Amino acid sequence: MRLLPIAASGLAVMALTAGCFSSSGTKAKEGSLAKGNSLKGATFTVGSKEFTEQLVLCQITAQALRSADATVKEKCGLNGSDTTRAALTSGSIDMYWEYTGTAWINYLKNTQPIKDPAQQYQQAAQQDLAKNHIKWLAAAPANNTYAIGVKTATAQQLKVASLSDYAKLANSDPKKASMCIASEFAGRSDGWPGVQKAYGFKLPKGNTATLAEGAIYSAVDKGNPCAFGEVTTTDGRIKGLSLTPLTDDKKFFPIYNPALTLQEKTLKDHPEIEKIINPVAAALDDATLQDLNAQVDIKGKEPSEVAQTWLQSKGFIGK
């Protein structure tokens, strides 16, 4: 999805990588991904958006391809979804991880998300290939979608586990349902206006605060100025701050499964890429991405280090 800023501990990482080419990134020894899949002589530029998860995915991809002897230039940390997508379609980069919901709604101009993840992926992949010659590799099971988060202890105290529970609280005691949202979420049809309409409540403006997206996690953690807030489901700060995303029991929020996207010609010339990346995608579930993101946002590690350690732990690349 998404246009999320990384936490303060990751800002230095973004500053060093954003918009900068690197051809001398982290080296990778052969592991399971490279067995029978040689990319010797091939050169690729791997890109990403600017937020933590994308920086990690960029490094995972670069190292996976290097383990099969490809030469990889990095363009990690491009500014926003539209910029990164334009870099792919123009050929400035060869590949990056995109989210099914973003492509379906933003790039393919469909107004209604598809609730079934497999159908959402299939339709987005088919349309993007037919209209734009963009190929989608296998989607990860992780779903980096919007959610309403709350401190776990507060959720238990208020007996709020789902968005339907929250709607009841908002209607009966708006003060206890105080909400922090970012300006973009406040105006999106798949954001705050849509949530209120879908779940049948209208929180008074006096009980809503608009903050920068990165500040919302800390605000919810402290309960000031809000008890609830807009989060995304694979963000590492959910685990690091003991937050609980409320269950979207009416399945309002779109599905945002990440998948590596690349020009059709690139994959045709180098079909080994699919065999290298698809096992990686299959291993990226919500808990895994939360943990990888937390290592950057909470522990302050470099995305390249986090990517390398994870790939090695899975045997995808050698130690």
Results as ranks from 00 to 15, higher is better:
residue 66 R to S: 00
residue 70 A to F: 06
residue 99 Y to D: 12
residue 116 D to G: 05
residue 77 G to M: 04
residue 49 K to T: 10
residue 129 L to G: 02
residue 131 K to Q: 12
residue 99 Y to Q: 14
residue 110 N to P: 07
residue 120 Q to D: 14
residue 108 L to A: 01
residue 52 T to V: 12
residue 84 T to G: 01
residue 75 K to I: 00
residue 68 A to H: 11
residue 111 T to M: 07
residue 89 T to C: 04
residue 125 A to S: 08
residue 68 A to P: 00
residue 79 N to I: 07
residue 49 K to M: 12
residue 78 L to C: 00
residue 139 A to N: 05
residue 79 N to K: 12
residue 63 Q to I: 06
residue 64 A to S: 03
residue 52 T to Q: 05
residue 103 A to L: 14
residue 115 K to S: 11
residue 91 G to L: 07
residue 109 K to I: 03
residue 47 G to A: 03
residue 59 Q to P: 08
residue 85 R to Q: 12
residue 97 W to Y: 11
residue 96 Y to Q: 04
residue 95 M to T: 08
residue 50 E to P: 02
residue 93 I to W: 08
residue 125 A to C: 04
residue 117 P to S: 12
residue 88 L to D: 02
residue 73 K to E: 06
residue 76 C to T: 08
residue 69 D to N: 12
residue 101 G to M: 00
residue 121 Y to R: 05
residue 117 P to D: 11
residue 70 A to K: 06
residue 64 A to E: 08
residue 101 G to F: 06
residue 59 Q to S: 15
residue 135 K to W: 14
residue 116 D to M: 11
residue 77 G to T: 06
residue 75 K to Q: 05
residue 113 P to C: 11
residue 105 I to L: 03
residue 109 K to C: 02
residue 85 R to A: 05
residue 60 I to H: 09
residue 79 N to F: 13
residue 82 D to N: 07
residue 120 Q to M: 15
residue 102 T to A: 13
residue 114 I to T: 10
residue 124 A to Y: 05
residue 58 C to Y: 13
residue 117 P to T: 14
residue 87 A to T: 05
residue 112 Q to H: 15
residue 51 F to L: 10
residue 113 P to T: 14
residue 108 L to S: 08
residue 68 A to F: 02
residue 138 A to E: 14
residue 94 D to Q: 03
residue 120 Q to R: 08
residue 89 T to V: 02
residue 69 D to R: 11
residue 81 S to D: 10
residue 47 G to R: 06
residue 55 L to A: 04
residue 66 R to F: 02
residue 98 E to C: 12
residue 113 P to V: 12
residue 63 Q to W: 01
residue 123 Q to G: 02
residue 109 K to R: 09
residue 138 A to R: 14
residue 86 A to F: 14
residue 91 G to V: 03
residue 64 A to Q: 02
residue 75 K to A: 02
residue 90 S to M: 07
residue 75 K to F: 13
residue 131 K to Y: 00
residue 85 R to V: 10
residue 113 P to G: 13
residue 135 K to M: 15
residue 73 K to I: 02
residue 140 A to Q: 12
residue 132 N to G: 07
residue 121 Y to S: 03
residue 59 Q to E: 15
residue 104 W to N: 12
residue 49 K to Y: 10
residue 50 E to G: 10
residue 117 P to L: 13
residue 77 G to C: 01
residue 64 A to F: 04
residue 64 A to M: 00
residue 116 D to E: 15
